[in-house]
Computed example of a mutant assay.
Amino acid sequence: MLRTTRNQAIALAGLAQAVHLVQQIAKRGQTDREAMEISIASTLKIDADTVEDVYGGITGLRDGLLKLKQQMGGREHIDPEHARYSALLVFLENKLEKRPDVQKQLRAGLEKAAVQAETAPSITDESVLEILADTYHQNISPLGPRIIISGERMFLTDPDNAHKIRALLLAGIRSAVLWRQCGGARWKFLLNRRRLQQETQALIDQID
């Protein structure tokens, strides 16, 4: 992947979108179906040629780009919960990057989900989400620390929602992988914040 600020912004938007969808499911029990399909599909595009290919273009990342813009807009605009989930996913991806054994198991789970998706009615079919959720639970959760999701109990205890949340957290991990592959790092985020803001706005303008 090319190490450009544009690609880093796209990857961060993918992460922001996955986390935002998790929050919506946890608190409202539902979320935007199209945005969720884009995020879930990204987990199955393991060997994409470009960052945009992972998300099928940038149009489907509009929600993520807007959320990313908000998160970089100053302290008064930041959603602390969203920032915490995102930081934890980046931290978990850093641990994953040092564990080739877990990466191998993770890839096997993703390939299994991809096979299931070929015959399922949609990429967000329960059969696909269950495999992705189990892949996250078996491979990412043990790396620690576990991400404790806040929300309404009636939504969090619903098995279908639990599968969606874990599958979306896995999508967040996928975006964190892209962020690193494109040259992203915490210190670069801090130093290049202005450039990332400009690229994010340019991407939003391109969609609108």
Rank of each mutant, 00 (worst) to 15 (best):
K104D: 03
I40E: 01
R33G: 00
A117H: 08
T124S: 12
D158P: 07
R180K: 13
K45G: 00
R193Y: 06
P145S: 10
L68T: 04
I78S: 00
T31S: 14
A162F: 14
I148W: 07
A120G: 09
I207W: 07
K45A: 05
R195F: 11
L92E: 02
H77N: 11
G74R: 09
L68K: 03
R174N: 03
K104R: 13
K69F: 14
K164W: 14
N192H: 11
Q206C: 05
H82Q: 11
G64R: 04
A171G: 05
S141P: 00
P80E: 04
V51P: 00
G57M: 12
Q103K: 15
L132I: 09
L170S: 02
Q138I: 05
P145Q: 11
L143Y: 11
Y136R: 05
L61C: 06
R75S: 07
V54K: 12
K98V: 15
G14P: 09
L129D: 02
D208V: 15
N139K: 00
M72D: 00
L156G: 01
Q181V: 05
D63S: 12
H163P: 01
M72T: 06
A202W: 13
L178W: 10
G29H: 06
L203P: 07
T59W: 11
Y136F: 15
Q103C: 06
D205I: 10
E52L: 13
M72L: 15
K188Y: 09
E152I: 14
